[in-house]
Computed example of a mutant assay.
Amino acid sequence: MISNFLNSFNELIYPELLNTLNMVLQATLYSIILGLIPAIILVITSPNGLKPNKFVYGVLDFIINILRSFPFIILLVAIIPFTRFVVGTTIGPIAAIVPLSIGAAPFTARVIENSLLEVDPGVIEAAKSFGCSTFQIILRVMLKEALPSIVLGITLTVISIVGYSAMAGAVGGKGLGDLALQYGYYRYDTEVLIYTVIVLIIVVQVFQSIGTLIYKALTK
């Protein structure tokens, strides 16, 4: 069984594992970039924020809630024209990064927002008393204090994107999800399917362990 696994890994699983890691890591980075600014704006304009603004907060909160409610497989199909415009194709791991990033961005925004809201109000008041600007409070106080919590939230985001990447395989996104579909569903190759699931579980556990280690390092 071990020899069969090694053969399947070298010939089939390893190339798709690289595709999956490429999709997940790039999509995570882009989702953080897309989610960070809205999260900060939500925190600043919230009723108890540094610069309360009911209109801006309400509009942005509504948009994020709408995007979060979209099933990923539907989003994947709905933004095909946009994906083609951005990367020139709708098939392959590079194309899958676009919907993966957009699908994960609202979740990332909420993760960062909640982490920032957990910062001790006393620390923020102290920064205000020292004459810190809103930008300084966000950058030097809130983000710094919330960083461990943000790391845990981003870890959950990464794991969610791993699941999304498996769905992306259903529409030509490649990766381990596509491999499981092609061999497990269309070819009834249960052995390859099982191997693929094992590798996916290992990938998730590795990401979780890395996130936990970073969190512990930041909280020491």
Rank of each mutant, 00 (worst) to 15 (best):
T28N: 15
L36F: 08
A217P: 00
Y183V: 08
F135T: 10
N7R: 08
N10W: 15
A27E: 06
L152Q: 09
F55P: 02
I13F: 11
I13N: 09
V158C: 13
L75M: 13
G153I: 07
T45W: 00
T190Q: 10
V86N: 01
I150H: 07
Y186V: 10
L179W: 04
V162R: 01
I137W: 05
I80K: 07
A104I: 02
V98G: 06
G58D: 11
A170G: 15
N48R: 01
V59D: 05
I137L: 12
S101V: 01
K174A: 11
G103M: 05
K144A: 01
P38G: 04
S209P: 00
K174V: 01
I37T: 05
I32P: 02
Y186H: 14
K174S: 14
G131Y: 10
E191M: 13
V192R: 10
Y30W: 13
P71Y: 02
A127G: 13
L60W: 01
P81R: 09
A170Y: 15
I150W: 12
T219K: 05
A170F: 10
T28C: 06
A127H: 02
I210W: 09
A170E: 06
I66R: 03
I214F: 10
L218G: 00
P106C: 09
V199N: 12
L117H: 06
F55A: 12
S133C: 06
G184F: 04
Y183W: 05
G131V: 03
S209A: 14
N65R: 04
G172A: 06
V98P: 06
P47E: 01
N114W: 03
F82L: 15
G169D: 06
L181D: 08
I97L: 03
A217Q: 10
G153A: 12
T196Q: 09
T196A: 10
V204W: 03
T108K: 14
D120E: 12
S115L: 08
G35A: 06
I2V: 15
I32Q: 11
E145M: 00
S101D: 08
I202G: 11
Q205F: 08
T83F: 11
I32H: 12
I37W: 15
I91R: 09
L156N: 11
S209L: 14
I32A: 01
V119D: 15
V43D: 13
F72G: 09
L176R: 09
G103F: 12
S3I: 05
E118S: 13
L12V: 04
V86F: 04
N10Y: 12
R140G: 04
P81C: 14
L36W: 12
P148Q: 00
Q208K: 15
G131M: 09
P47A: 01
L117K: 10
K174H: 15
L25F: 14
T134P: 07
I102S: 07
F62G: 04
I198A: 14
F130A: 07
I44L: 04
G211I: 10
T28V: 06
S160Q: 15
Y164S: 13
D178N: 06
